[in-house]
Design a protein around this nucleic acid. Structure first.
Lengths: 223, 223
DNA sequence: AAGAGTTTGAAACATGCGTATGACTCTGTC
DNA sequence: GACAGAGTCATACGCATGTTTCAAACTCTT
């Protein structure tokens, strides 16, 4: 599409290329401050390069944002779908609802680990959902829809009596919990708040809550 | 605190005062576009007054935002707490979990009605959670904490076997669902998406899901 | 009617923004 | 050694922003 140098030379260079530093720094700053609150000067300053580099490599701030976002989107999506798939046909015979949930939740929260390369991506997605700067179908078509489809399909394999509309609603109920709990956790942490939860505790709670929630959505009560 | 005119004269004037027009317009624009993307010129232009009015009445853009936010905060909080209280001791005898949930969810979603005076407030809160522009304790102390306390208290009255930590987590799970489902609904609506849910359907689903979720968080399984 | 106090108005100010330009350095090729 | 091209740099342009200024217009009391 565009004809900017992008990553022309192979990444064999020992030192990090300007292009990658821009992507890394902008990922962190966009996540921490948001798109508009992050200036090109902030980014290039922290990336130790000239202002013109953004336009030279990406052709503008918007394109930098888009490329930064796309960079991790595919990998993250595939990781989630793959984890769903594995949870369904892991034990061959009877996959459990709880196993499916635990697998998805764990994978979903993995980027929050402190050492994770995409630990800023979570905040970035939260921002993009509330205040989109990408053409909406990018995130919808390349993330939400595929994952939702995989999950809904897996869920209905585990619980055939659940109708599809309910299954999709359950998916959003689950994702809503995940996004919100992380947000609240961070909000309470920034304050000198006493009440906190460990990651382990959060996962366990969401698993239990969602197992109960999904079971309750069955037409009649069954196992 | 500040010594700006604020609403000095009584609101007996037939025509709307500049001050109120500024609050109304800014509420809508801040909700639709976000804080930074809304300029003072945009606001004063739509409010049909001079740019200087914002600084004259509020002393700056930030204060306008804060006052606009505070204006509805107390009423909304009291409405939610009151609805919780009413749900608990309505029938005198045994309040039901489902009744408590339905009451809270309905009240929570009420501002989304098209004619509601605070129909923009929902989006505003979503934005403020992800990208805060108020000192954090304002929203935490004047909204989240009081409502969470009321709800947790009511929930434990209905289900005494539920421990407090779980009850608080259940609260956030519920709010997370509510905020996210609205977001997704809007996202799908902006696209030419086939799948949509009616407000009625959403409420019913969240009630069922949450009733099941909360029951599943009990230490041992009981009625 | 006069004058004090309040509210509006047009214009300007300083700042920060995204982007563009042209010169410079470095590296590899002939 | 000359050349070409990629990358970097300081700098500047045009524009939008929040805020300020100060005079004009209005409102109300006396």
């Amino acid at each position: 599409m565009d004809s900017y140098p992008k990553v022309v030379s192979q990444p064999s260079e020992g030192r990090m290329q300007t292009c990658d530093r821009l992507l890394d720094v902008s990922e962190r700053l966009f996540a921490e401050r948001g798109f508009r609150a992050t200036s090109v000067r902030d980014i290039t300053s922290e990336a130790r390069c000239n202002i013109a580099a953004v336009n030279y490599y990406f052709g503008g701030k918007d394109n930098l944002y888009r490329e930064m976002f796309r960079r991790r989107l595919r990998a993250l999506r595939e990781e989630r779908i793959e984890s769903i798939r594995r949870a369904v046909d892991q034990d061959g015979a009877t996959p459990s609802l709880e196993g499916l949930l635990r697998a998805f939740i764990t994978t979903f929260l993995r980027p929050l680990a402190d050492e994770s390369a995409d630990r800023f991506y979570f905040q970035l997605i939260s921002r993009e959902l509330v205040d989109p700067h990408l053409s909406p179908d990018i995130f919808l078509a390349e993330m939400i829809e595929p994952v939702q489809n995989a999950w809904t399909h897996a869920l209905r394999a585990v619980m055939p009596d659940l109708d599809e509309r309910s299954a999709r609603l359950c998916f959003h109920a689950l994702v809503g919990q995940l996004l919100h709990v992380v947000k609240v956790q961070k909000l309470l942490g920034s304050q000198g708040q006493k009440e906190q939860w460990s990651a382990q505790e959060l996962v366990e709670h969401i698993v239990r809550f969602s197992v109960g929630g999904i079971r309750a959505c069955l037409p009649a009560s069954c196992p």
